[in-house]
Design a protein around this nucleic acid. Structure first.
Lengths: 249, 249
DNA sequence: TAATTTCATTAACATATGTTATTGTCATAC
DNA sequence: GTATGACAATAACATATGTTAATGAAATTA
């Protein structure tokens, strides 16, 4: 159930530091945010299209995604979120949800009241700035996603996606060498890439056969990072990492 | 060349009022923003990927688009912008451009220094809020665009796009009944929809033959709004219009 | 006005990707 | 420890969409 634990917001601080410099004092302010934690299972719908949430959600553990259902019943996943992400920060400004947010794996999520976010943004222009940046990076990732689906063939698209989540996991230090958590089903990958499960299967097979990656259990290992990046037409600049982090990619 | 004219920023006020209530005083503050106006021809690159602009651009007249070039040289247009739009407001927070912004038609654009935007945002929390909303609506449109390209067939996708720009033109009062400006070439439509020019041509033919639209000169007329919306699986909620405006759609 | 260039339209053909269906493996539950 | 259901892997086949190329109209430039 809901409880409060010490420094549970650490993933957020780590995540923000990948993109912006935070002083110790600023980090302290963030860690002091009020929140409640919930443990939820896979497939839990955190917020639904049409909802008007009064809190925003922080992923503490697990993977979530935002998605919409189109007219013929198809699902399009528009983003995936890992620990440290604030996938519905926007609901603070845009009151009505225009999409759904759900967990893909069993997860721990932190719920931060909008009032606290309001307070944080008012506390200093810099904090407001940092949160605004988060939302805009979100937008940048959407733009890249549009390019992926619109103009890159499925193999490239999937490779690009793998590169992105690999970098994002590494940013939060959730990698084990070249291995990252990877619990996506092929159906989920298909819904994210705007393709079919069968084709995802075909494309993954190529990436494995060509020695770029392997998937075992719920983990992905990258064996040839150079080749994967090249295959995926991947350039991390759209993630707007801090210079230090960018250098590490 | 650059000059200053009285109330040139009116399109911005009209645009903002479609989404949020502005008091007369607030409108006045916006109209008082410092800016320079440039008349540019079609194909003018306002900012390029990698640039670090010190001003943001407001479309006063004409159509612009944001786009990226992918590995094989293909172009993906990620958004289109009409008068009243602030397509690179984000460059205020995200210093380095992750995409290009260019005019598609001869245009008049206003250039607002970042310092003035900073000043505006500091002037009142509400102004900061309004600008944040603009950026987030941008993100919402991106999400819908992802759904379009990822999960809707080309006919639906194009119809959806036409619905969107129709509504957006109507919001700023730039329609003449059911007719709006429409200067897109089929190549541009293809690059926006992630498809080919030939296929755009096929799909437009269907929309015309079925009596939904006609295109003449540089104008689009909607003959059957209901059917076009239905064909395009279009629901304007993602545009986050004010209640009054939403009712009019 | 003639010369160019851009754009729309279409046909013929190629192919990446979608669809349906079957099978086997693995995890979870009872 | 068997039953159930999710998931991955393939095969066979269908099709939406891409590609190339040719033509004519319309806009632009000389």
């Amino acid at each position: 159930m809901a409880y409060r634990s010490t420094d549970a917001l650490a993933p957020l601080v780590v995540r923000l530091r990948a993109v912006v410099h935070l002083t110790d004092k600023e980090a302290e302010i963030i860690r002091a945010l009020p929140f409640t934690v919930r443990e939820v299972k896979a497939g839990w719908e955190i917020v639904r299209e049409g909802d008007r949430p009064s809190q925003s959600c922080l992923i503490l553990d697990g993977v979530s995604c935002r998605f919409k259902i189109v007219g013929d019943g198809g699902r399009q996943i528009v983003s995936v979120h890992i620990p440290g992400d604030l996938p519905d920060l926007q609901s603070f400004h845009l009151k009505t949800m225009d999409h759904n947010l759900a967990t893909l794996t069993p997860s721990r999520i932190g719920l931060i009241p909008h009032s606290a976010i309001h307070h944080l943004m008012m506390s200093s222009p810099r904090m407001a700035n940092i949160l605004a940046r988060e939302g805009l990076i979100d937008g940048s990732i959407f733009r890249e996603w549009i390019c992926n689906i619109g103009r890159r063939p499925a193999l490239t698209r999937v490779a690009h996606f793998l590169c992105e989540i690999f970098v994002r996991y590494r940013l939060i230090g959730a990698n084990d060498g070249m291995t990252i958590p990877f619990a996506f089903t092929q159906t989920e990958l298909a819904d994210a890439q705007g393709t079919s499960t069968v084709h995802i299967n075909r494309v993954l097979k190529v990436l494995k056969t060509d020695g770029m990656i392997s998937i075992a259990g719920k983990a992905l290992t990258v064996h040839d990072w150079e080749k994967l990046q090249e295959t995926g037409d991947f350039d991390a600049r759209y993630l707007h990492l801090s210079e230090a982090e960018a250098a590490a990619v």
